[in-house]
Design a protein around this nucleic acid. Structure first.
Length: 237
DNA sequence: CCCTGATTCGC
DNA sequence: GCGAATCAGG
């Protein structure tokens, strides 16, 4: 299993969100807790309450010696990841037909058919170059910091369904540059899928999820610890 | 014991 | 770059 953009993004998000390495590893699947930690450090992520701190302890020497000097003891083959290999390949499952219901009711998103530059947001005279989402979400470039973002309006848009058009769940294979890659549910679970909504042009997520993915960095004091994680947060069992 | 993250080092 | 092995604190 390789560290793809998505997997790295998930790792970083969960790591910063406070999830433990074990949880992250489980979520990603196919990797061990150590792999997650190793990757996190390689990425430059770190800190977080770690049980170990004192750096003046004898470490490398004993280990090094032990390793090089063939240990007389045969170490048991750690069962390690005894998982069914790849849960990360969620098959579309049964084409559970979603009842059409009131499908053609509302078209939530601004439905920007404009695939690229063509700005769909009817921003008449906005001084800033921003697009406006349904919930009043102001689009910002990732590097376009603007702290005084008003209180995130309690987004209470339509139900939760990504899009009426996409009655079928968006599977991993359905992902492309035009649909929102926000994970819904947990990988490996039968109904795991992706948002699938049309992306906010220039971003990997739809307008709504951009609001979740890119949050203004609040002052240290005013930060809220339990940030809304994607995929609904760490799995609870 | 279990958990946690940190570190080293062979690959 | 990756991650198993290992360490060390809780």
């Amino acid at each position: 299993m390789s560290w793809t953009e998505e997997r790295i993004a998930t790792l970083a998000k969960m790591w910063e969100g406070g999830s433990t390495a074990s949880q992250i590893a489980e979520e990603l699947g196919g990797v061990s807790r150590n792999a997650v930690i190793g990757k996190a450090h390689r990425l430059g992520l770190k800190s977080r309450p770690s049980p170990v701190k004192s750096g003046d302890k004898a470490k490398g020497k004993p280990k090094e010696a032990a390793k090089k000097a063939s240990p007389p003891k045969e170490k048991a083959p750690a069962p390690k990841a005894a998982k069914p290999a790849e849960p990360a390949a969620p098959k579309p499952a049964a084409p559970v037909r979603q009842e059409p219901a009131q499908a053609p009711a509302v078209k939530p998103a601004a439905a920007a058919p404009a695939e690229d530059g063509a700005e769909a947001a009817p921003a008449p005279k906005s001084p800033r170059v921003v697009s406006v989402g349904p919930g009043g979400f102001l689009r910002q470039g990732p590097g376009d910091q603007q702290p005084p973002i008003p209180p995130a309006p309690p987004r209470r848009l339509v139900p939760a369904k990504p899009s009426p058009e996409i009655s079928d769940k968006t599977s991993l294979l359905d992902l492309n540059d035009r649909v929102c890659r926000w994970p819904m549910g947990h990988p490996g679970e039968p109904d795991f899928h992706f948002c699938g909504e049309k992306v906010n042009p220039g971003f990997p997520y739809c307008v709504e999820h951009c609001g979740r993915a890119y949050q203004a960095q609040l002052p240290r004091g005013a930060r809220r610890p339990p940030p809304p994680l994607p995929f609904g947060g760490p799995r609870v069992r």
